[in-house]
Amino acid sequence: MMIEKTVETKCDKDVWQDFKREKSYALSYIYHQNIDFLFAYGKKFTSDEELVLDVIQDLFCYLIEKRKQLGKAENIRMYLLKAFRRRLQKEIGKRHRERELNNDLAIPTLEFTIEEEVILEEEVEEKQNEIRRGLKKMKSQQQEALYYRFSCGMDYEQVSGVMEISVVLARQLVSRGVNVLRKHMKESGFIFFLFNWKKF
């Protein structure tokens, strides 16, 4: 899961142009380069795989049909990610309203969870699992910002662009998220220490 800044950008611009000019390889390239990422990313907002796939399909259909009118894309993945997030948000909101008829004014915020349940991966050291558990203590927006910053390697401008918030707020979300994690690490580290200390 990479958002490469330097290497792919130049190339992306050309691929995008080719896509707009209906060169047939471009769609295939764009789809196959990004489908895994979009699917995994979508799953962070909902566990409903069909919904994620529907939105991906709608997004691509839109791109194909409107390709002549589309703007430039310096970074295709960023472009797709933003467009996809917006559509997903709309769709989840729509379904939510359909379920809760009496509450049709409330627009739910996009719920982002890095992992539903923290899976204890054997190859990940215990301390890292401890850090992941700390994610549960923070707001969805903070988790989302941390995900873009550290899992995807985005800079703050990109984070703010995707989340449609200011750069200042993006920075705040990340730094508060980091503080929660560090605090959690210290607490659990201390408990860990006490627990082991008794043994001696």
């Binding site: 895994d36 796939l53 049909e65 850090i131 550290f150």
Partner: peptide, 28 residues
């Protein structure tokens, strides 16, 4: 540690579904 803890193994889309979706898009 903090950065590596945030690298996750991701949900994967099965090969067949990936191809199915691709075929639909090709038609579009």
């Amino acid at each position: 540690r903090i950065i590596s803890a945030l690298q996750f193994s991701e949900d994967r889309l099965g090969h067949k579904r990936k191809i199915d979706l691709w075929q639909k898009l090709e038609i579009v």
